[in-house]
Design a protein around this nucleic acid. Sequence first.
DNA 1: CAAATAGTGTCTTTCAGACATTATTCA
DNA 2: TGAATAATGTCTGAAAGACACTATTTG
Lengths: 256, 256
Amino acid sequence: MTAGYDPAAFVPFAVTVDLAVFTVRGGRLHVLLIRRGQQPYEGAWALPGGFVTPRESAETAARRELAEETGLPENVVAALHLEQLRTYSEPDRDPRMRVVSVAFTALVADLPEPAAQGGGDAAHARWVPVGEIGPHPASGREDADLASLAFDHAVILADARERVGSKLEYTCLATAFCPPEFTLGELQSVYETVWDTALDRPNFRRKVLATPGFVEAVPGAARLTGGRGKPAALYRPGPATALHPPLLRPSEGRTR
Amino acid sequence: MTAGYDPAAFVPFAVTVDLAVFTVRGGRLHVLLIRRGQQPYEGAWALPGGFVTPRESAETAARRELAEETGLPENVVAALHLEQLRTYSEPDRDPRMRVVSVAFTALVADLPEPAAQGGGDAAHARWVPVGEIGPHPASGREDADLASLAFDHAVILADARERVGSKLEYTCLATAFCPPEFTLGELQSVYETVWDTALDRPNFRRKVLATPGFVEAVPGAARLTGGRGKPAALYRPGPATALHPPLLRPSEGRTR
DNA sequence: CAAATAGTGTCTTTCAGACATTATTCA
DNA sequence: TGAATAATGTCTGAAAGACACTATTTG
């Protein structure tokens, strides 16, 4: 910023935040979308977000907008791991005015349906399987409007998916997709869902348990998973945040 | 952006870009700084950058500002690998007005001194060893003003260093620090300089040469490096961009 | 018992770290 | 020749991939 504050150089921008909030439900990756109530893109699906106010940072704004616009419970929003993705600043990304948007990603565990939908301002928020979004619909799509998202949100969503996929490789963030206590099978299915790859179960166990601080066993606890079979031991997230060495995606894995 | 365009919600921000441009020179990591000519922080060192204009993206602005403010040759700026780092939006990061800044990192090969310094607008641009910046000066610092940078640029610089370090682990970006043709010893010294770690030469060679598309041999070419010893073979950057598997930093390497 | 799910053990290959050795050049 | 630098080879141990096998539960 050498140029200082030449008045001719100062140009007013609007600054917004957009959020790509993911969850894993039923073996599919979902993202939280809201249906727009105003122009432009009225009626289209969009990522939640909104304007940054004069006295808050982008991250603060992101957390506030998420609480206002979606039905996510207060405690979930407050504890959310929010990561800045990148900033989108193409001049014509908004048809009306110059808007620069700071995008964030967040991961939450699957929630009881009513809490996730909420009421009031959140009446138009919905978890959407990412596979149902885009111009080449999977058969059985419920909503034809998902063919394209508002603004450049399809690009933001794609970038966010890629980021989440690589974060799983070298951080312990996958536990953020799980409830407070989870089985290793559930943790593995998070990886398989996000990467869309099958993983070898014994090798996955070995890797996770060999990483100090990734997960901690809950002594004595067990949970029956599929109604049948041996109950699985339960684990909690451990204190570690990084994975050394990383848990790399299979290079050419069959995509199930 | 569900909220639409409620006039009460629209707040004008200034949007700027800041650049952390690195090079390796003489076994030390350097960053390009400029000395500010105006308030605030007049006389302080700062990262190059400036305002985004109404019809350009942040990345376009970053490239333009770099060309205007520093003496970097046109062709270098045009071909530069520019990567968005993150956006800094704390409300009081600029003492005068609300400024949101999109930060970028870039890597360049060491340049002939005059070209890097330039004249005119670039008269106050300088390559500064990153070790000489900050409150705990290495002995022999030339410039006491480097104890602190303008605005939050010390934070941006620290984030950029961390990002560059990890990019070297899983991308082929290290070649961006090298001239068009380089020796493996030069490439290794890039890693050693950025990571501040000594690497085993035979193992480094093996790893680099075993990664398809990282580097390509220049047939027959060789260069004498230290005035003595066997001339080293020359290599060019290859077509690969990612490193699979990654070249990880030694966990507890001696720091030379 | 069969089906389903959790969990263990083992073999093999790949790869990284350590380090000895050879090759080529200049003073 | 000796110092300096590049390049090759080898041993070892850690970790990943493949996969056979055991354990515990429900119906």
